[in-house]
Computed example of a mutant assay.
Amino acid sequence: MGSMSIWHWLIVLVVVIAVFGTKKLRNVGGDLGAAVKGFKDGMRDGGTGSTETPPQQVANANKATDPNTVDVDAKHRS
Rank of each mutant, 00 (worst) to 15 (best):
V19E: 10
G2E: 12
Q56M: 12
G21I: 01
V70K: 08
K40H: 03
L32T: 14
E52T: 15
W7R: 15
L32D: 04
T48P: 04
V70R: 11
A18G: 13
I6S: 15
W9N: 04
A61E: 01
T22Y: 06
R44L: 09
T65Q: 14
F20R: 13
V19K: 04
S3L: 12
P55M: 09
Q56K: 12
T48M: 00
V28R: 07
N68K: 15
K40D: 03
V58F: 03
V19M: 02
V16M: 08
G29H: 04
A64P: 05
I11D: 15
V58L: 12
N60Y: 10
V19S: 01
P67D: 06
K40Q: 00
W7D: 14
H76S: 03
V14R: 10
S78Q: 05
G47L: 12
Q57N: 07
A59H: 08
I11V: 14
K63H: 11
R26P: 00
Q57D: 11
Q56G: 04
G38L: 06
F20H: 12
L32C: 10
T48L: 02
V72K: 14
A59P: 01
D73S: 00
H8N: 10
K23N: 11
S5R: 06
G29Q: 03
V70I: 15
W7Y: 14
D71T: 11
K23E: 10
H8I: 10
R77K: 14
T53K: 13
G38S: 07
G47W: 05
Q56A: 11
S50P: 02
I17G: 02
D41R: 01
L10V: 15
G47H: 08
T51F: 10
G21V: 06
S78K: 07
G49I: 13
D31K: 02
R77E: 08
P54M: 07
F39T: 00
V28T: 04
D41W: 02
N27D: 15
W9A: 03
T65M: 08
I6R: 15
Q57C: 09
A59S: 05
A35E: 07
M43T: 08
D71F: 06
A34K: 11
F39G: 00
F20E: 15
L13K: 13
N60A: 13
I17K: 07
K23V: 10
S50I: 06
A34W: 10
V58M: 11
V16T: 07
T65F: 08
M4S: 13
R26C: 08
V14D: 04
A35S: 13
S3I: 02
M4K: 12
V58K: 13
R44M: 05
A61K: 12
F39I: 01
V14I: 12
L13C: 05
V15Y: 09
Q57I: 05
I6W: 09
V36A: 01
K40T: 00
H8P: 10
S3N: 13
A64I: 06
L13Q: 10
